[in-house]
């Protein structure tokens, strides 16, 4: 066994790249679920973001615009979900699954002309002083902007839900939409706003795959990342910090086990291969073992004012 060939700085850098798409999608979905809506269309919104982000980034040779476009594309797709579930009161599970199918089909249609193209490189941030630190600089402070955006987003979501009035209202809507409605809060518009936020985050997560992590467009390239994000939200018991832990654990163990295989570690490969799932679930279950960790009480239930 020779781990000398694993460079910790490069390893951490790869872990951050691997975790970011799932983190973006999961933090968005967490807000949606906090508002009492279960949107199973994360995979569909991610892949739509991946293809639209890629197409725009290639056309305008600007990854930045790519991410903005991906956010809009994800939000646009989630708007369909919002209209169907909030106004027409369709079943959220079925609509979400439909959204995934629609997103996969739509993306392969949009993506046809972009197969085999290369994405413009995403500039790495060069933070004065910090990026120049030995080892740590390379490890933590010289990534592309989206890595930091995703982490700031986690902090912002946490602070929003915990300390702001608007966050409290959003949680109230998710816990008991009838009570929130009785208090005069507009349940439907609040939920739609949350759904759009979730869609935008999933779209950006998808674009991170096609613009940074892979980087190219391939049909079906999310390959289940959206479902992982959904699972992480549940195992993280709807807490922003734990979502971040879950996403980094999953991304981290995925990359770590690949590196261990590359370095020739003497561990059964099938075990290494399953380790991202096992370790992420174990850790999140253990840290969720104490305290309140139930789902938002109104999760997945349709709301209609006359009821």
């Amino acid at each position: 066994m020779d781990f000398g060939s694993i460079n910790p700085a490069l390893l951490i850098a790869s872990i951050m790249i691997s975790a970011t798409p799932i983190l973006l999608a999961a933090i968005g979905e967490m807000v949606v679920e906090k508002a009492g809506v279960l949107n199973l269309g994360v995979e569909g919104m991610m892949i739509t973001g991946a293809v639209v982000g890629f197409a725009v980034a290639v056309t305008l040779t600007s990854p930045g615009f790519g991410f903005v476009a991906a956010a809009f594309a994800g939000a646009a797709l989630s708007l369909v979900f919002a209209l169907l579930t909030q106004f027409l009161l369709s079943n959220q599970v079925a609509t979400g699954l439909g959204l995934t199918l629609a997103g996969l089909g739509l993306s392969s249609l949009i993506g046809k002309p972009y197969e085999g193209m290369k994405s413009p490189p995403m500039p790495k941030l060069d933070i004065p002083v910090l990026s120049d630190l030995p080892i740590v600089g390379r490890m933590l402070f010289s990534h592309d902007a989206m890595v930091y955006v995703s982490l700031l987003l986690v902090v912002a979501v946490w602070a929003f839900l915990k300390y702001t009035r608007a966050g409290l209202i959003l949680r109230a809507v998710g816990e008991s939409h009838d009570s929130a409605h009785a208090l005069g809060y507009k349940v439907i518009p609040i939920r739609i706003a949350a759904i759009l936020f979730g869609g935008a985050c999933a779209g950006m997560g998808g674009a991170y795959l096609s613009l940074v992590r892979v980087p190219q467009w391939t049909e079906g390239m999310t390959a289940g990342a959206g479902w992982i994000a959904l699972a992480i939200v549940v195992f993280a018991s709807w807490r922003a910090g734990r979502v971040a832990v879950g996403a980094y654990l999953f991304g981290g163990v995925t990359v770590l086990q690949l590196n261990l295989q590359a370095a020739g570690a003497n561990v059964p490969v099938s075990l290494l291969s399953a380790s991202p799932y096992i370790i992420t679930i174990l850790v999140l279950v253990i840290i969720s073992a104490r305290g309140v960790h139930g789902a938002p009480a109104s999760l997945g239930r349709s709301f209609h004012a006359t009821h």
Binding site: N7, L11, A223, V255, L258, S270
Partner: peptide, 23 residues
């Protein structure tokens, strides 16, 4: 040699290539 236990997962394939190159 890295075993991925999948035939198609672009993100994982890219990660694996990176892990090999970094090693």
């Amino acid at each position: 040699i890295i075993w991925l236990y999948t035939w198609f997962d672009p993100a994982k394939e890219a990660d694996a290539a990176r892990a090999l190159i970094e090693n």
